[in-house]
Design a binder for these strands. Structure first.
Lengths: 145, 145
DNA sequence: AAGCTCTTCATACCTTAGTACCGATTTTAT
DNA sequence: ATAAAATCGGTACTAAGGTATGAAGAGCTT
């Protein structure tokens, strides 16, 4: 639309210049020059309108120091050394969470006797005498969270 | 330089056009139109040459994982909340290391009774029922190492 | 000086933890 | 298939943990 409008102006200008050079024949160079300048500017204007601004992206890396997420990973080596059974390890985990033997019996649907048997065997394997020592050792060896 | 070269072409063209319209007087509109189109294109070309691409800096955050300096710092806020006495806190620390009441009595040169009194008061303040729960809570609140 | 908290210790009582020893299934590995 | 390990459960006993209550001295504040 803008361009067609420009063409309209162009036509008008042509008529005007045509009339002009009939009057002043020698001034034709000047008019042509003016046309040249005008259309050059028009071209520049069109170009700036049509061409999207060329954007050159320069990627700048900004270093951000992030503390390693304190993901707990069990020390499998140490855990294997202890040679605990599934049940024993399960019970150890509950012990470290502060559960009593009675609690554990309820949680695992076992009798108190069974839990006591497991804990006793567990302590022998861990080479500790009390559950509090088991907790301390388990946390130190990183075999529980 | 390019522009002066263009002006040279322009001068040449003017002479050519001037000569042309002397020969074919009626064709002036066409020549003017050609001039318009040419200089429009010239303007567009100049514009594309002149406009430098805008440089846009894109800052990309690069995460660098830094191992947590595992310097343990006690959570003073949580510790203050509990309002423990020196002795109680001292005993709590020994409990978390797996010591029995008898051990603690020996270590602190106290009677077993005294240790029991302290632990009992400690558990009330910590709102727990057993030493294992105290351990779990103390570690969770990071008030002991 | 009176009041407060902290500390120490004691007795009595109850609960939980832990050991020892046993028997019985069920899994797992050879 | 057989042996070994793991699981489950029980009784009886001892050890340790925990509660309740009281008492007394030390140190601090008002």
């Amino acid at each position: 639309m803008i361009y067609s409008f420009m063409l309209a102006i162009l036509v008008g200008l042509l008529k005007w210049f045509q009339w002009k050079f009939l009057i002043v024949d020698n001034a034709i160079d000047i008019y042509i020059g003016l046309i040249a300048v005008f259309f050059t500017l028009l071209g520049i204007w069109i170009a700036t309108q049509l061409t999207r601004p060329r954007v050159e992206k320069v990627i700048v890396e900004k270093e951000i120091f992030v503390p390693i997420t304190d993901e707990f990973t069990i020390n499998k080596t140490e855990l294997d050394k202890l040679n605990l059974t599934k049940r024993e390890y399960e019970i150890l985990q509950l012990i470290t969470k502060g559960h009593s033997n009675a609690d554990i019996a309820s949680l695992l649907f076992l009798s108190l006797s069974t839990v006591k048997t497991h804990t006793s065997n567990l302590f022998v394997k861990m080479n500790v005498k009390r559950r509090t020592q088991a907790i301390e050792k388990a946390k130190r060896l990183q075999i529980v969270e």
